[in-house]
């Protein structure tokens, strides 16, 4: 009698090899291991549950179609995150064609916001516990423009370099630096404002 493979116990390279040879169950196991991470990455950029679910599913379909291109240079999760990130950036580009730039981005292009906004000292945040802190930062991320948030996510969470972000976003390194700087300043300012409101800082 043929032994049924235990997919849940299989290591990642074995599952990837199985999926490469067309074994859907191996691929399903990979999906079950990383679906939350892929969804979380999509959500961190798009800030919309339905869109994040759709884009993360599309990322898995693309991953299946491009499995031969995965050679294990990076981890499978990193490779997947790159795919979903690219899909999110494509979606942002598509959306951007449908609407005008936000005032925030227009101001960024002309410079005054960066000049007049002081970076906030975020040290008092240490009073919050880790869970609260994550929620506050996440709320603040919500308030950033799509482009600023995307740069921040690619830099801080995807660990891409300026040049790689510029390539992925079809923009210049200077714009990436400017967006990153603005995003950090704005995030720190938003956190500071919230803490002031709650009386955690004066």
């Amino acid at each position: 009698m043929r032994e049924v493979p235990d997919y849940s116990a299989a290591d990642e390279p074995r599952l990837v090899d199985g999926a490469k040879s067309g074994d859907m169950q191996s691929f399903e196991e990979l999906v079950s291991r990383y679906r939350d991470k892929v969804y979380a990455r999509a959500y961190s950029i798009m800030r919309n549950e339905d869109l994040a679910v759709d884009l993360s599913q599309n990322a898995w379909v693309k991953a299946w179609q491009r499995l031969a291109q995965f050679h294990g240079d990076a981890s499978f999760a990193t490779w997947l995150n790159r795919i979903v990130t690219n899909l999110c950036l494509d979606e942002l580009r598509r959306q951007k064609r449908l609407r005008t730039d936000s005032i925030e981005e227009i101001e960024e292009a002309t410079g005054p916001v960066e000049n007049r906004m002081e970076i906030q000292d975020v040290d008092p945040i240490a009073k919050l516990n880790q869970k609260e802190l994550r929620e506050r930062i996440d709320d603040a991320m919500d308030k950033l423009s799509d482009n600023h948030r995307a740069v921040l996510v690619l830099y801080e969470y995807e660990h891409l370099e300026y040049k790689e972000i510029a390539d992925q976003m079809d923009t210049s390194i200077g714009t990436v630096m400017s967006r990153l700087f603005y995003a950090r300043k704005k995030l720190a300012a938003l956190l500071g404002e919230e803490l002031k409101r709650e009386g955690l800082i004066e």
Partner: peptide, 23 residues
């Protein structure tokens, strides 16, 4: 300080639908 704060506090999320449905 800001960089450190952001990079170390990424919000983890759980898929808002069942794994079977998603698959």
């Amino acid at each position: 300080q800001t960089k450190d704060l952001i990079s170390k506090h990424e919000m983890s999320r759980i898929l808002p639908e069942s794994g079977d449905f998603y698959w």
